[in-house]
Amino acid sequence: MTIIVSGIDVETTGFDAEKGHRITEVALIVYKLHTKDMRLEEVTRIATLVNPKRDIPAEVQAITGITPALVKDKITWDELAPKVSKVMMKTDIFIAHNAEFDSLFVAHELLRLGLPINEDMEVFCTMENGRFATPLGKPPRLQELCWALGVDFDSEAAHRAIYDTEKMMDAVRVGIEKGYFDLSEVVELIEAERTEAA
């Protein structure tokens, strides 16, 4: 069976899509998961700035470096969303750092446009599953997770969607190899569901 894994990160104008905050950048890297050795093979990626068609608060610009001038001529979410929806509908495992934020934000923004979401998709949060990376077991920042796993991390390049997604997925690979991340239970669940459906 082919298991499709999508690592994703979004930058936004704020934390609440229901209050009109919008996506300013998205990075979605799609992998085929080889279940025998849990090896990830990249298949495709979407990585682009997005014109949110609204203001970007100054405090957000200071964190992400994404300014109105930077996104002025970029694709809008309305134009990009059908492509994202198509990829997500084929995704078996959605991976994000702080998945509760990313998954809910992306789901909201797809549903807002009347596009389907994959309700059967499994979600794996590297923040919640990465508590081993901090001395007191608190949810780690992505930088802390990478440091704990020996993955290079440049804090000056952080808070951009493609950089964060690449580093998160590097951490996932190393975490699987070293036994810190275990996707086998999720894979078994997906395979059992597919067998039942067949």
Rank of each mutant, 00 (worst) to 15 (best):
I3C: 11
V5R: 00
I8L: 15
E11I: 04
T12E: 15
G14Y: 02
A17Q: 10
A17P: 14
H21N: 13
H21M: 01
R22M: 09
V30C: 07
Y31D: 11
H34T: 12
E41M: 03
V43N: 00
I46Q: 10
T48M: 09
V50W: 03
D55R: 07
I56D: 03
A58N: 05
E59M: 01
V60Y: 01
I63Q: 02
I66G: 00
K72T: 07
K74L: 02
K74Q: 14
W77T: 01
D78P: 06
P82K: 04
P82V: 03
P82I: 03
M88E: 06
M89Y: 08
D92K: 03
A96L: 01
N98C: 06
D102S: 07
S103A: 12
S103E: 11
F105R: 02
A107R: 12
H108C: 03
L110C: 09
L115R: 05
D120L: 14
M121H: 08
E122L: 15
M127F: 06
E128V: 03
N129F: 04
G130A: 01
G130D: 12
F132R: 04
G137R: 02
P140I: 00
R141D: 11
L142E: 11
E144I: 03
G150W: 07
D152Y: 04
D154S: 02
E156N: 15
T165W: 10
K167W: 13
M168T: 07
D170P: 05
V172L: 15
R173W: 08
E177F: 07
F181A: 01
D182E: 06
E188P: 02
E188D: 07
I190L: 15
I190E: 13
A192Q: 13
R194K: 14
T195L: 13
E196D: 11
A198F: 11
